[in-house]
Design a protein around this nucleic acid. Sequence first.
RNA 1: GGGCCGUUAGCUCAAUAGGUAGAGCAACUGAUUCUUAAUCAGUAGGCUGCAGGUUCGAUUCCUGCACGGCCCA
Length: 502
Amino acid sequence: MDDLRKIKIAEVEELRLKGYNPYPYKFEKTHSNREIKEKYSKLENGQTVEEDNVNVAGRVMTIRYHGKSSFFVLKDSEDRLQIYINQNAVGKERYELFKEHIKIGDFVGVKGFPFKSKTGEVTVFTKDIEILSKAIRPMPEKWHGIKDKEIIYKQRYVDMIANDASIKNFKIRFEIIKAIREFLWQKGFVEVETPVLHHLTGGASARPFVTHLNVYDINMYLRIALELYLKRYIVGGFEKIFEIGKCFRNEGISYKHNPEFTMIEIYQAYADYNDMMDLTEEMISYVVKKVLNTEKIVYQGVEIDFSRPWKRIKMRDFIAEKLGVDILEDPEEKLIQVLEKYDSVPEIKDRGHLIEKLWDLVEDEIVQPTFLMDYPVEISPLAKRHREDPRVTERFEPIIFGREIGNAFSELNDPVDQLQRFLKQQELRNMGDEEAQMLDLDFVRALEYGMPPTGGLGIGIDRIAMFLTDSPSIRDIIPFPTTKPDEEVAKEYEDILNVNKT
RNA sequence: GGGCCGUUAGCUCAAUAGGUAGAGCAACUGAUUCUUAAUCAGUAGGCUGCAGGUUCGAUUCCUGCACGGCCCA
């Protein structure tokens, strides 16, 4: 155990002996820091409002001592507020308490009245002060904050204490989710829930996490997508539904990928993928405007304009334009030739995988919000065949800054075709493609009871949050990203753990 | 999985053609009743990520490992 902690723990005991509770139960907070700042912003410099009693509370961030008077700064969930305290006003006993035992990092409650300092800062004049919680760890550096990524990700609470920008990013994230809910509720969608534990995974191409259900002694998977259960709702009679929830993919971690991430999926009966394109651009531009009060953002130095309408282009046309190859008509040998030039021939060389690789070569060239339409049937096992060309499906992905932010189709509701598609996926699995989808016979059976024509849409919430916060890494907008376990923390408590053993 | 970079005080960072580690903030002791990165004087704080190697001597050079970051698959 480290010395500073020992001293602080001793101080906590000392406070108790002196009759103060270092961890009291409650404080009657009447105003947030922001409310104080807004309400009293128009005071003249030096003007006081002694008749207004305000109770504020928060964490002490800095203290500026001046002998028998001091200024300090309280941080609450919204803002920072300056507090003034002097011995004449609070009495010697309270001022001694402040000077000796209220330190940076502690939570305090202040009762007083507002005034504006000579230099023009809205400040609360302390009439009474109490400790609300003693911190026994040193706070990070007050000016530079925390820069060590390991601390930032593994001890996010420290990052949030020190770096106001992190809190701001998380607030934007949660406002995005709130705006999506608002939008969909206004449109008459019902928010539903589906299981996280699945007997089979489906709805996406990804490796799942495996877990064990003791009571049935069976392995189960954490969901990789919401899709197949949401469609069961549509079979059952729901017409407009959505779910926002965590999905889990047991794959690499990168600036774009976290093993658990947040998806929204939306299903609308009697709609097709054209309707879903309209819904997507309407919803996303609504959210961007609601959260940032503009439709144009700058992401990593590039301006992105979310205003409607978004561009709509066919995958076949786009790849033909960029690579001079027709993904539907040209023989597979020609596709391979092109891929060889870029040294990215896939292991499994069927047309679907070849096309996917070709697309990977050019996706960076789409920057502004664009719907890339009509994916080949081989790589779209849950999408309905195109009404004009059965080699492709009525599927699109919204692309922004070269990244897929979602996936949508006219949902496949022909149970016989669906079973065939699943069997194709089985073949791929047998060929070693661990990401191919599992055969979900109960889902086929559900479709056999009849699912109305349906448009479906999934969007990665994390990716949207990255754009709206200008974050280069997904870890910057996931409050507690997946990390390796923190071995250091056990070392910090080694003494105590060893003492308890003996 | 491969390549490159990093790891020094609680935090943010210095340093050395190999010669026993410094600053600011935080902490501690004083001074200071309108400051705001307050100021001034002083004190304390380090197995330089871990384990080996080379050397009279390693924080510095070499190897391996751990953790992190960036790029690639």
